[in-house]
Amino acid sequence: MAKDTDELPRRFVRTKEAAHFVGLCARTMEKHRTYGTGPRYCKVGGRILYDIEDLREWIATSRRSSTSDTDTTDIPPAKPHAARAPAYVGRPRER
Rank of each mutant, 00 (worst) to 15 (best):
T5R: 15
T5Q: 14
P9D: 08
P9K: 14
R10G: 05
R10K: 12
R11Y: 04
R11L: 06
R14P: 00
R14A: 10
R14S: 11
T15D: 11
E17T: 04
E17F: 07
A19V: 02
A19N: 05
H20I: 12
H20N: 14
H20K: 15
F21S: 04
F21Y: 15
V22W: 09
V22L: 07
G23Q: 07
C25S: 08
C25I: 06
C25A: 04
A26K: 06
R27G: 02
R27I: 03
M29G: 01
E30A: 01
E30Y: 01
K31S: 00
K31C: 01
H32S: 03
R33K: 09
R33E: 02
T34I: 03
T34P: 02
Y35C: 03
Y35K: 07
G36C: 02
G36Q: 06
G36T: 07
T37R: 06
G38T: 01
R40G: 00
R40T: 03
R40N: 05
Y41D: 02
Y41V: 02
C42R: 08
C42V: 04
C42T: 02
V44G: 03
G45H: 10
G46P: 07
I48A: 05
I48N: 05
D51F: 03
D51P: 01
D51G: 02
D51K: 03
D51A: 10
E53N: 11
E53K: 13
E53R: 09
D54G: 05
L55N: 01
L55G: 00
L55W: 02
R56V: 13
E57N: 13
I59R: 12
S65M: 15
T67H: 11
T67D: 13
D69W: 07
D69A: 11
T70Y: 10
T70V: 14
T70H: 11
D71H: 14
D71Y: 09
T73Q: 14
T73V: 15
T73S: 13
D74L: 13
D74P: 01
D74S: 15
I75N: 00
I75Y: 03
I75W: 06
P76M: 10
A78G: 00
K79N: 08
K79Y: 08
P80H: 06
P80L: 07
P80Q: 08
P80R: 05
P80F: 10
A82N: 06
R84S: 12
R84A: 08
R84V: 03
Y88E: 05
V89C: 12
V89W: 13
G90E: 08
R91F: 13
P92L: 09
P92M: 11
R93Q: 12
R93F: 08
E94W: 13
